[in-house]
Write a protein that binds this DNA or RNA. Sequence first.
DNA 1: TGTACATCAGTGAACGCGCGTTCACTGATGTAC
DNA 2: TGTACATCAGTGAACGCGCGTTCACTGATGTAC
Lengths: 190, 190
Amino acid sequence: MRRSREDTAETRRRILDVASRLFRARGIASVGVADVMGELGLTVGGFYRHFASKDALVAEAIDAASIETTSRKPRAEAGASSTRRALVDSYVSRLHVENPERGCPVAALCSEIAHETPAAREAFSRALERLLDIVGRVEPGRSKRARERQLYAAAAAVGAVVLARATTDRALASDLLRAVRRELTTARPR
Amino acid sequence: MRRSREDTAETRRRILDVASRLFRARGIASVGVADVMGELGLTVGGFYRHFASKDALVAEAIDAASIETTSRKPRAEAGASSTRRALVDSYVSRLHVENPERGCPVAALCSEIAHETPAAREAFSRALERLLDIVGRVEPGRSKRARERQLYAAAAAVGAVVLARATTDRALASDLLRAVRRELTTARPR
DNA sequence: TGTACATCAGTGAACGCGCGTTCACTGATGTAC
DNA sequence: TGTACATCAGTGAACGCGCGTTCACTGATGTAC
């Protein structure tokens, strides 16, 4: 039966929230619309009152995940090396590796996103931009040199998390994280 | 009808070759057994004379891709900085980004491999080991320091290729590649 | 070397299954008066 | 404020489709004598 406007908005929010967690945890291809709705105790049919298609959900879920994970990140005291260390330590961490469902969507979806719709790829690109924004806050500077350092740091951080998740060798996973953490937190003369 | 032993072995080799290219290009989930066999002008049924399941094919195809891409890499004159530069320039390149089907399986499959079978994940882990082997040849040393340098070089290289493929922003893709190339080819005092 | 038979690579159709999507229906909510 | 009606969130079954896998069949290859 029909629900109140607030209930409707709330349901939509919850679908998005569950989807963004499931896609990050289990990948886009292996999460179905029924999985998402089932997690909320709802049936599939109702899904299409909120989203035009699974593809539309994917795109919105990536945006939602990105906003969720970047909005709680450092704003004030940007540039302090302790802020940078805190960010690197939390991103390039075992905790992040083991909890993709609450983590960075860029790290969770980076290789499979290439096979998704344009809308999903654009959402992913925005997520990457947001990640780079945050890196820019803790690795400040607008020079060409500074920009390169930011891009490099982002690539290494994402690479470390993704590879640590991918390998079955737990020791190698730890080593990768530690190596990249050290590289990105050690002040370096230029 | 029955084929000669050589023909049989050749067919198996070709299935593996096509599969390893298709998986890298289009991802594991979106390539079917029929796609692979169709590419060879064969029908699905025959597939099971060569492999026990799609999952078995996936694992073997990852190994095949890894061996294919690492066996032509530097062996002699290892450690020379020109060798390192050549390796970095070819891995962290537009050419590699635009031709995943002939490229590194680690970069092609890194995020989706987490959702595959143990056998596939182990093949992926071996592929990562081979990649690290090669990095170890051009970034020599067995010290803790050297090992860390190898690990973050690998993470940054893979991260750059994956993110350059993922983003829809071509300028950002180029910038990522250039930044990581510069970082990894610039000799750095320690 | 020649013959008879067993093997098995590849065919093509069928299987069950899960997927994204659609649809008639329900009943509470929202709206017009 | 109260009433009558339109709307529409959610249900549950059905749809077509593509997937991985199985299977009876074929005929050339391999093997035993």
